[in-house]
Amino acid sequence: MNELKTTTVEVRLPTRMGYEKVAMSTAASVAKLMGFPDDRVEDLKTAVAEACINAIEHGNRLNEKLSVGVVLRAESDSLEVKVIDDGIGIGKKPAKPDIDRKMHGEEDPRGMGMFLIQALVDEAEWVAGLDGKSSYVRLLIKLDKDAG
C-alpha cells in the first residue's frame, strides 16, 4: 500500500449494538496498511466505534430494518471515514463532559461519545442529510500528524 493513491473500502453494518466492532476492525486494518502508528490506530478504532454506536442508537434508533454505512477513503496522507445513518442528524453538539458534574449527579454519566470522537481524530464534522435522512459524521485522521 506504499504507492496508495486513493482507495475506498465500504462496509454496511446491521443496526445492532456490537457490530461497531466490524467497522472498528476494518478501519484498523486499513490504517495499519497505510502505516499509521499503533497509538493512532487505537485512537481511530475508538472514534469509529463511537461514531457507529451513535449511528446505531441515535441515528437509526435501533431500527434493525435500517443499516449503517461506513466508507473509508484512504489518501496518500490521510484516512477519511464517513459513518452514514438514516437519522436527521444532530441538532447541536452536546457540551464537553464534566466529570465533577457527573460525579455529583448533575450530568448523565453517559454522553461522552462525541467528545471522544473529536478528541481522538484530527477532524470531525457532523452533517445532516438534505432530505432529513442519510446524515453522516466525517472523521479524518492524518498520517503525518506529529510531523508538523
Partner: peptide, 16 residues
C-alpha cells in the same frame, strides 16, 4: 480489550 463510552459510563457510575 474493548471499552466504549457506555462502558466508561458504567465505571463512572461505579465511582459515584
Amino acid at each position: 480489550d474493548y471499552i466504549n463510552s457506555s462502558g466508561i459510563a458504567l465505571v463512572i457510575q461505579l465511582l459515584i
